[in-house]
């Protein structure tokens, strides 16, 4: 709040009200519903619901299917985060280094940010198409029959490729802007002290980039958990049962296709706790980041 603030009593209320009403109706109400209905079991024919305590949660904890999906989600998240961050770091370091064409490279490496995940998934479906896809043809050339949507591992592979491709630009933008904010004086001092580019990178650049990288780590985990929904939904081709899916996708299929409202809500709550933990971590780091700069 500013010291020289206005003191009209009604105006700020009127200004805040629309935002608060929308948040109350479309955020707090559904969030409460999710927590509430996670303790109930719905009748599949729509005749009310029974209180079952923590039953929906124990059902999750003992479900081998849920464990499998959780396992894939962890694997998928780690792979997508590592590959997209690593590739983007390499590209950002090079784009920061070159003199000629720096702007053109920036444009060419970031525009994919604007493509929606399901459209990216559709592009993947084209490249990995069973009959006409060039990547499928390439694998066939080496004697492997790639079957997206039919073979669990093949679909997982294609999903990872598409999700990484879609995520490189965001990481690239942040890492490049992080690199460019390193003061010239620091760079020059490092240049005088150390001739080896690799040593310079690991001793000076990388530590200075660490706060950005950590922030991106959280962004990437969130992306892999939630935003890849569109990629997955397109790439499983209407057959999620025999294909790899993530936890968020399971919330959706159980809730809307299986009409297991209680089970789906319990899964939502589990994810809420996960996001909460991630956000707390992010803010802890944010506090430390202030010390850096």
């Amino acid at each position: 709040m500013k010291r020289a603030a206005f003191s009209q009593p009604l105006m700020p209320v009127a200004l805040l009200l629309p935002q608060l009403v929308i948040i109350a109706v479309f955020f707090y109400w559904p969030a409460w519903e999710a927590i509430y209905s996670s303790f109930f079991l719905q009748d599949p024919f729509g005749f009310g619901s029974n209180f079952v305590g923590a039953n929906n949660y124990t059902r999750l904890a003992t479900s081998s299917e849920y464990a499998k999906v959780a396992g894939f989600t962890v694997f998928f998240t780690v792979i997508v985060t590592v590959l997209s961050l690593g590739t983007a770091l390499l590209l950002a370091v090079k784009a920061d280094k070159v003199v000629r064409g720096a702007k053109t490279y920036r444009t060419l490496l970031m525009w994919v940010y604007a493509i929606a995940p399901p459209v990216a998934g559709f592009l993947g479906a084209l490249l990995f198409d069973q009959n006409i896809g060039p990547i499928t043809d390439l694998f066939a050339f080496f004697g492997y029959n790639l079957q997206i949507g039919l073979n669990y591992n093949d679909t997982a592979f294609a999903m990872i490729v598409v999700s990484v491709w879609k995520q490189i630009p965001v990481n690239f933008i942040f890492l490049l802007s992080g690199l460019q904010s390193i003061p010239v004086a620091v760079r020059e001092a490092a240049l005088i002290d150390n001739k080896s580019g690799t040593r310079r990178f690991w001793d000076i650049t990388f530590p200075l980039l660490a706060p950005t990288a950590f922030f991106l780590l959280i962004i990437n985990i969130t992306y892999a958990l939630f935003d890849t929904f569109g990629v997955i939904d397109i790439m499983v081709k209407g057959n999620p049962a025999s294909n790899p899916i993530t936890l968020v996708y399971k919330v959706y299929t159980d809730g809307f296709r299986g009409s297991d409202l209680g089970g789906s809500s319990a899964q939502s709550v589990v994810l809420m706790v996960l996001v909460l933990a991630l956000t707390v971590m992010q803010f802890r780091m944010l506090e430390r980041r202030i010390h850096y700069t």
Binding site: I23, F27, W29, P30, A31, E33, A34, S37, T222, F226, F229, V248, V251, Y252, G255, F256, L261, S264, S265, S268, L271, M272, V275, L276, T279
Partner: peptide, 12 residues
């Protein structure tokens, strides 16, 4: 609200 993306409270 930043704690809970729409995806996790989609059904309610």
């Amino acid at each position: 609200t930043i704690l809970l993306p729409l995806e996790v409270r989609i059904l309610p």
